Amino acid sequence: MSGAMVKVGGEQLLLLPEKAVFWPAERMLVIADIHFGKAAAFRAQGVPVPRGTTSENLAGLDFLVAAHGARHIMFLGDFLHARASHASSTQQAMLAWRGRQSGLDLTLVRGNHDLHAGDPAAALDIALVDEPYTIGPFAFCHHPDMDVPGYALAGHIHPVYVLATRSDALRLPCFVVGRERMILPSFGSFTGGHAIRPEAGDSIYVTSGEAVHSVR
């Protein structure tokens, strides 16, 4: 799989096909909008949606940690989707994963869904912070429209970019890389996407799941 290296805030960041960012200097994975337990929340309301999204998300994290030698994961908000995300099966899977990845530092920048869902279980040993949370040149946020010191890395809007021909169109998750902020695509399975219109100065990198491509 092929990522794309960009330089922002004076640092090199690797945009990954798996819809995450890796900061090599800090061995940090940056993950936006994983929305653990979203499918469980829908099922609790009687909506028949597929099972297995929590396991899929955790397997994706395992792959990226191993592939890049990450020692820290920064979650940019919306870690849990709703109060129903505290369902026993979801919690057990997450605790088992944490047991396998006990050496990782985990930080959650609280997002809007986290405020409603409540904090993750204490046993997951996640450092909980409010936005903006700064490390080096970066301000880690959930919302991309905050006035922050430094270069902002944010999520929230689940950006996708529409590639269109005369007869067809394709919506692909994308990274929106601007002069003062980057918006990451939603990492989580079963989270959907919002078609964006780039602002002046924005570069767009789409991911096919296999590679990251610059399209603007």
Results as ranks from 00 to 15, higher is better:
5 M>Q: 14
10 G>P: 11
15 L>F: 13
19 K>P: 07
19 K>N: 05
25 A>S: 14
29 L>F: 06
37 G>T: 02
38 K>T: 01
39 A>N: 11
39 A>T: 10
45 Q>K: 05
46 G>W: 09
49 V>G: 02
52 G>W: 02
56 E>P: 08
58 L>R: 01
60 G>Y: 03
65 V>Y: 04
67 A>Q: 01
67 A>Y: 04
70 A>W: 06
71 R>Y: 08
72 H>C: 07
72 H>Y: 06
73 I>P: 04
74 M>A: 06
75 F>Q: 00
78 D>T: 00
80 L>S: 01
87 A>E: 02
90 T>P: 10
90 T>C: 14
90 T>I: 15
96 A>N: 03
96 A>F: 10
106 L>P: 03
107 T>N: 05
109 V>D: 02
112 N>H: 02
114 D>H: 03
120 P>M: 07
122 A>E: 11
124 L>I: 11
127 A>I: 09
128 L>T: 07
130 D>I: 11
132 P>M: 13
135 I>E: 12
137 P>H: 13
138 F>K: 15
138 F>Y: 15
139 A>G: 11
139 A>F: 13
142 H>I: 10
150 G>A: 12
154 A>V: 12
155 G>C: 03
162 V>T: 08
165 T>M: 01
169 A>P: 07
169 A>K: 14
180 E>M: 12
189 S>C: 13
192 G>S: 03
196 I>Y: 11
196 I>Q: 06
198 P>W: 09
210 E>W: 14
211 A>S: 12
216 R>D: 13
